[in-house]
Design a protein around this nucleic acid. Structure first.
Lengths: 212, 212
DNA sequence: GCAATAAATGAATGACCATTCATTCATGGG
DNA sequence: CCCATGAATGAATGGTCATTCATTTATTGC
């Protein structure tokens, strides 16, 4: 009855409550899987009452969609901050920053990646999931291909295919994330990082070095 | 009442029924997602009655596990046939065969890949799923690393790291599959294949060529 | 043919879970 | 200080679904 945190009921504005619930949903998906989340689990994890999620999100489906959107947009924002920054970075710096970002703690955090792959696993049968996942990706594809093209130009390389290298990098990072997430003993995060770095160093030797 | 295929009830031995049901489960997971499969959907898809799945598999959970195992083992068998064949292939031939196999129609079939990634999406929260996925993978890791090491030796390359290249190849293929599966317009299968080939050609120029 | 056996059926059961809504309770304006 | 507002609660509701099992139907040995 008199839980410390509960004494202040109400108190919080809509947006704060929604984010609380989304964060709780992320933890629940990571812990129980997408097919194991229930409204009771989510609201319990948030320390709130059963009805609250429907109050703010209308339905479980909407809650899940907004959770996916939250995780997706967070990644896209961080990535765009690097790719769009026309103030500072050289081509080499941007490429290095992209790599560091993809293996930074904020991105490789287990819970977030678990959510990402949980939804991807259902994306084929749920057009809405697919649309949310694909939307930002298509834009990022082009930006990364453009960055790679610039690097090839700077290196005087006229044979390599920037678009192909970009798809490869994106897929490689996805695969490394997935393998490290599912079994970090088989693919430690450090090794995943080195693998991605090796890919870039091999394609752009003048921009990315192998070591460090 | 008198459906053509139904006149012969019973008729079929246990093993045939089980595989029928597993195949139906594969199609249902691909169509409805792992969280959307119900016993009614699966048995309906197989053209049989509700109770049949529990009769042969004891529970829904067991049916799903055996389905995952079926898909996993089919892939592992095809892959081992290549990696273990000590009768014929040279290092270069094995590498080429591995690549062709990974993008052969039997492997890239949508339904099977959809099942694979559906389970991977839940693998973190379900130790049993993870164990089934990891079991064969660990063995394959070593075999591919050994193959790559042989190629490096043949090329006189003493600097490259075969284990790192192997993890990279495996992750790249996973990522390419996933991207092509989720949105084939963004990453057509042909392009995915070329990307994987490019990876190998770049690491083993004396064994794999870029074109064809 | 005729039990005896085993496979298959699908209506009935019970568990679980999303959603609802009458009620409770903080908050802030008057 | 008190009422009006709307956030928050959680017991109750209804729907979905896995599982069971009494019954039906094919098969096999005699």
């Amino acid at each position: 009855m008199t839980r410390t945190a509960k004494n202040t009921r109400r108190a919080l504005p809509k947006e704060v409550r929604k984010e609380q619930l989304i964060q709780a949903t992320v933890r629940c998906i990571a812990k129980h899987g997408l097919s194991g989340v229930t409204m009771a689990l989510v609201t319990g994890e948030a320390g709130l009452s059963m009805g609250i999620a429907n109050l703010h999100f209308k339905s479980k489906d909407k809650l899940l969609l907004e959770t996916l959107q939250f995780v997706t947009e967070e990644y896209a924002q961080g990535q765009n901050a690097i790719l769009d920054s026309d103030t500072v970075a050289s081509t080499a710096d941007k490429m290095a920053a992209l790599l560091e970002f993809d293996f930074s703690p904020g991105v490789t955090e287990k819970n977030k990646l678990a959510v990402w792959f949980a939804f991807l696993g259902e994306a084929r049968s749920r057009p809405t999931y697919r649309r949310i996942c694909s939307r930002q990706d298509a834009k990022a594809d082009e930006k990364i291909a453009a960055l790679f093209q610039r690097a090839l130009d700077e290196a005087g390389d006229k044979k390599a295919d920037a678009a192909l290298l970009a798809s490869g990098y994106i897929a490689l990072v996805d695969g490394l994330w997935l393998n490290s997430l599912v079994d970090p003993r088989r693919l430690p995060w450090k090794k995943a990082y080195r693998s991605a770095r090796h890919y870039l160093a091999s394609a752009f030797p003048q921009h990315i070095s192998l070591d460090q």
